[in-house]
Write a protein that binds this DNA or RNA. Structure first.
Lengths: 221, 221
DNA sequence: TAGATTGTTAATCGATTAACAATC
DNA sequence: TAGATTGTTAATCGATTAACAATC
């Protein structure tokens, strides 16, 4: 149930790195940027930015700041998004179909190669250029195409069984939209997105606290 | 940039409460349940469960445990989901349409009354029983129907302008799927769901740490 | 009464912030 | 050299865990 990673790099820092990277995409690559400027762009404190970056290496120059280009490159590599990820999507329902077209994925190096579903109405069809295959072909296609990541948008009842298959086919990272606690071996990583729970969080904050709530800092901040 | 709520109730506890509530939905309402049992069902430690609950009041009986029915009722009310929320969805693209049919919302007391979009192709159509109206009608319809919550699935470029309108029409809670930092007055609460960033988080964990990652604890635990 | 389990206090752990010496 | 800004150390803050007295 630990959340951090071992060498003093909090798991909480990772989405911040993503935000730093995004901010750098809007800066000119020939520029040098200070932690103070990055702070203005992202909303995180300059101290936190320096600390986050320093925990991965030495990317700045005292007295000058950080080279935009160098820092971009470093963050790409730290985040592991400097190369393509092959992704499978399982569950081509409404949400699954919508995600197949999601620009936030497509703009990046996450390549959804296949969708899987058991509905005969969907098998063989293409959504946003991604073809739907039957679940029976899942293991084989995943293994053959070096797919290490999966997006899970199946019904609750099917989730665990699908995950078992994904894992035994070699998938090691799962973005799970199903509101259920998946059981996976230790070396497999799951990131849950539970939209109902996010709404409840809003409900809570709006119900209590007639004044004071801020934007959440955990994810996008 | 604070994350907590004032009286020692961490914002981080809120999604845990949601999980406790869900677990209780699967227990018989006539039963009494111990923190130990809830721990087994949810994966959170018994100590944390007792502490979380105790910070809201006294719901248990020493020596016995918690009445499932009473705790359910208490959590419903703490989370503010014991009454209907009127919700508007803005941006009826792929993702927006998918969310209109999302069971996780529908099962609960979040009622999406209207969708809004500027695309003439969509205006007047119905998705999952929810009708699409032009953005020009947003303020009026929100104000007239006591809508306090909104789901935002518009393109990046439109997001801030739409949010301004939402806020001035009386919306105080926004579930934001747009990968952008929204500027809102202090008393408005925004919860961001940034799917690309969640994928990057997986990428990070899979890239480094050849061994040790667990399921994330922040949201679904 | 004995056993169980809460609510709470104290101890630990971890993350963020502040301050500053090192360095360009 | 003087000014700027990093990387790092120490101080603070906050959240979780452990332990246990109170109580059913």
């Amino acid at each position: 149930m630990s959340q951090s990673q071992g060498r003093g790099i909090p798991d909480l820092a990772v989405p911040r790195l993503s935000h730093y990277y995004r901010a750098l995409l809007e800066s000119r690559e020939t520029d040098v940027i200070s932690s103070e400027e990055l702070s203005r762009l992202t909303g995180y404190s300059a101290a936190q930015i320096r600390r986050d970056l320093a925990s991965f290496g030495q990317f700045g120059t005292p007295g000058r700041g950080y080279s935009v280009l160098d820092l971009r490159t470093a963050l790409l590599s730290i985040l592991g998004i400097d190369k393509d990820w092959h992704v499978a999507l399982v569950g081509a329902g409404n949400l699954g179909q919508a995600l197949l077209g999601y620009k936030g994925f497509r703009d990046q190096r996450f390549k959804v190669l296949y969708a899987f579903d058991n509905d005969p109405q969907k098998i063989g069809r293409e959504f946003q250029g991604v073809k739907v295959y039957p679940l029976s072909e899942l293991s084989q296609r995943i293994a053959q195409n070096n797919i290490r990541m999966a997006i899970l948008t199946v019904p609750v009842a099917a989730a665990q069984e699908v995950v078992n298959q994904l894992v035994s086919s070699g998938v090691s990272a799962i973005l799970n939209f199903v509101p259920v606690r998946l059981k996976v071996p230790e070396q497999i990583t799951v990131q849950n997105i539970d939209m109902a729970i996010e709404l409840e969080r809003l409900s809570y904050r709006t119900t209590r606290s007639p004044g004071s709530t801020k934007q959440d800092t955990t994810k996008q901040q």
